[in-house]
Amino acid sequence: MNQTLNLLVGVAMGLNLLALGSSRLPSVIRTMAVQGVVLGVLPLVIEQDFDWLVALVALVTVAVKGFVIPTMLRRAMRSANIEREVEPFIGFVPSLLLGAVGTIAAVAVAGALPLLPEHTGTLLVPGALASVFTGFVLMVGRVKAISQVCGYLILENGIYLFGLLLIHSTPLLVESGILLDLTVGVFVIGIIVDRIQRAFDSLDTRKLTVLRE
């Protein structure tokens, strides 16, 4: 069980790197979607015996993070006619290196945390911290609003990974509430992106600091 779990978390960590290194918006969105699917499958791996509730959470997570949210982002991109290039504040190689340093730090920090005995052999906590850090770097280091949304979603993936530690004590209501919030958030951002595009002729967030009549 731990072997498969670690393999999947490892894949998610690799996808963090790809998200930091890719220079096209569609590939960032795709990376984020694949990561959502990989993490959505995790509850099924953690749970030894099959449980309807957990299966439902996994199914809904995969559907929302892997398909609904990426589709909405792609639609927003298409309707707002955004260029596909990612414009970085922090260059690609520096942000990759930052992400790597963050991951190494996450692994080091997780070793020092007092975890439950059943979680010590797994990579859940390092993976969660690394994803949160990657999300931060993407949000701070990219110019366009869509790539910042992707950063936010990767950050949320990290928080979700952290939440898996408590899978037995978190009620289904909280999980579904988070997913609903996320969907609505992305939905609203899709509308806002369209508005920003119309008002400023660009999605460059640097231009949003200037006040206009």
Binding site: N2, N6, G10, M13, G14, L17, L18, G21, S23, F92, V93, L96, L97, G99, A100, T103, I104, V107, A110, G111, G121, L123, P126
Partner: peptide, 23 residues
């Protein structure tokens, strides 16, 4: 190209981290 090669290097580095911590 250096970006892609750095990504490859970091992927291997993460594999090293996982091998070290993942048991």
């Amino acid at each position: 190209v250096p970006l892609l090669l750095t990504t490859a290097f970091l992927l291997c580095l993460f594999a090293l981290l996982l091998a070290w911590k993942g048991g």
